[in-house]
């Protein structure tokens, strides 16, 4: 594994002509899948973008599965069975990733709800059309601004 890093000529070529499928529809699916599978020896690179040996092997495996008639879901399953959830650049939605997927929307909902409640409460208070600065405020502001 260590030596692989040394051999790893980055960033040379990723998907190469000789590994591409002749059927354009299948090849397009393979590219789509390849963009969402992580190269397991690289740092945050998809197998399609990596020139590592194992990324090449994984791209080939994806194409073999597709040629054998697998659905996209079956190809993902194949990879997850061998490399774990780690291989998916888009983590699956399950118990362990609930917080990951729902965290953002949750922040939005809670903060949004809190703001709405606050706004409602405030609506009870009539808002004066204008709020001129009091003489004291004006003086303070002038002083602060060094005027």
């Amino acid at each position: 594994m260590l030596l692989l890093l040394a051999l790893f000529t980055w960033p040379a070529f990723a998907v190469e002509p000789r590994e591409m499928l002749t059927d354009p529809a299948l090849e397009a699916r393979a590219r789509e899948i390849g963009r969402t599978l992580r190269c397991v020896v690289c740092q945050n690179q998809a197998i399609d973008d990596s020139s590592a040996e194992v990324a090449h092997d994984m791209r080939r495996a994806v194409r073999e599965r597709l040629v054998a008639g697998d659905s996209d879901a079956a190809v993902y399953e194949f990879m997850v069975a061998r490399y774990g959830d780690y291989v998916l650049l888009k983590p699956p939605f399950k118990a362990g990733t609930l917080l990951l997927w729902l965290g953002g929307p949750l922040v939005l909902l809670i903060a949004g709800a809190a703001l709405l409640v606050a706004a409602r409460r405030r609506r009870a208070v009539p808002i004066p059309a204008t709020e001129p600065l009091s003489a004291e405020e004006q003086r303070r502001l002038d002083a602060l601004l060094g005027r």
């Binding site: 594994m1 030596l3 397991v40 020896v41 092997d57 080939r60 061998r82 490399y83 774990g84």
Partner: peptide
């Protein structure tokens, strides 16, 4: 030689 078996084993490199 071509690493096909290795993918079945979830190999990432050598040694494993």
């Amino acid at each position: 030689l071509d690493g096909k078996l290795a993918v079945d084993w979830g190999l990432s490199g050598v040694p494993e």
